[in-house]
Design a protein around this nucleic acid. Structure first.
Lengths: 209, 209
DNA sequence: TTTTCTATACTGATTTTTAGGTATTTTAAT
DNA sequence: ATTAAAATACCTAAAAATCAGTATAGAAAA
């Protein structure tokens, strides 16, 4: 059995080095490279074979979830294992949807990491214990999923979060304050919340801010 | 020169292991232990000598900043180096105020880490390059620093963030709605914001939520 | 081309928040 | 024992947000 050619993508050099040394003793694994940026991995993949990628969600250039998709476009045979701090159910699901074979939190144990790697390369989908729990019990807030906001709504959301009133926003965007009120109302409705306080809370929790 | 007895505190086992192996070759360093929880370190320190602690801000039990203080209370001779992802100027300053000898971001290079360790144990304060920049240009929002909230204020802040109105909060806490309004007013004033939207935004940005 | 979605704007009524104070009682610290 | 801080409560009035609707023009998708 040949060694699995593996790359690590994480914006923390310390984590990359850590993973490298941690996995150095694995028989069937060969860490060929570590990257801080997503683009670096993509250009590597264009010229080299890769069996496995350990991938972070938060990267300086591209989002890890989009990166999943692009890796799979370039090389369908490459397995992807997400190693992230994000505990949002929606993010986990999106990652899997985009081709990841597993999802681990960074605070998972070394054994879990080893186990998930071996499952991933076998072609199975594998989660760490904590992630499994997150997937299994969707919290009330997450039941209706992440609301898709229109461009205008996003724009107004950030202005609300900046403490601006409907009048101020209206002036800034050359709109009627009544229109801004409508968008505000729609935002509150889309997020399923009662008022701006909860709106901002939810939006920032969901990384929409 | 004797070896520096060093401990690592981080909620990510992978980071702990990574740092351990990364620093294994350092001549003057001896990693004696790694902990995921703050309390574990504190009880260790009560019985053992430690020269250096590499410390994360986000921990499952105690806040890293408070932990700084408590480490210094137990053992003034122990140097603390913060290794965190938080780029908030206020958090960095608080850490230093509470006795840390340096602050590194997790995405800093291995060389920076080595350099800061050597400076810290010499008794100097040392920051990674990026952190240095953050310290040097205080953003507008951060000029007045993190407001210290009272217990009641914190309590009411989370209820506001949950979308509750003053009346609802008053009922829940067996207070007059007018009292809740006063606390609300004080929160807005302490944070230097215009309304709850901005309040929740700031509070969540500052990890006070 | 018809339908759906987005962005726009309005009415009217009600609730909530915000801004400007003041003031008393607990609780904690010196 | 004194002082300072925190928690409590109130007043008045204006500003803003929320609820519950309706409606229309333009863009995008079916």
């Amino acid at each position: 059995m040949p060694e699995l050619l593996t790359a690590i993508v994480d914006d923390h050099p310390i984590v990359i080095e850590g993973l490298k040394t941690l996995l150095a003793n694995e028989e069937n694994l060969r860490i060929v490279s570590g990257f801080c940026k997503g683009e670096e991995l993509l250009s590597y993949i264009e010229n080299n074979k890769l069996d496995l990628v350990l991938l972070d969600i938060t990267l300086p250039d591209i989002n890890g979830i989009e990166l999943c998709q692009r890796i799979k476009q370039l090389s369908l045979s490459t397995s992807i294992l997400i190693l992230s701090n994000h505990t949002e159910r929606s993010i986990i699901m999106q990652a899997i949807q985009n081709g990841a074979s597993g999802y681990l939190l960074k605070n998972s144990s070394i054994d879990e990491l080893r186990h998930c790697i071996s499952e991933a390369v076998k072609g199975n989908i594998c989660y760490s214990k904590e992630v499994m729990e997150i997937i299994s019990r969707p919290s009330k807030n997450e039941l209706q999923g992440v609301p898709r906001l229109t461009r205008r709504e996003k724009e107004i959301l950030v202005l609300i979060a900046a403490g601006k009133t409907s009048q101020m926003i209206a002036q800034e965007l050359f709109l009627s304050p009544l229109t801004v009120d409508t968008h505000r109302k729609n935002l509150i409705q889309k997020f399923g919340v009662k008022n701006v306080a909860e709106l901002i809370m939810e939006a920032s929790r969901q990384q929409q801010l």
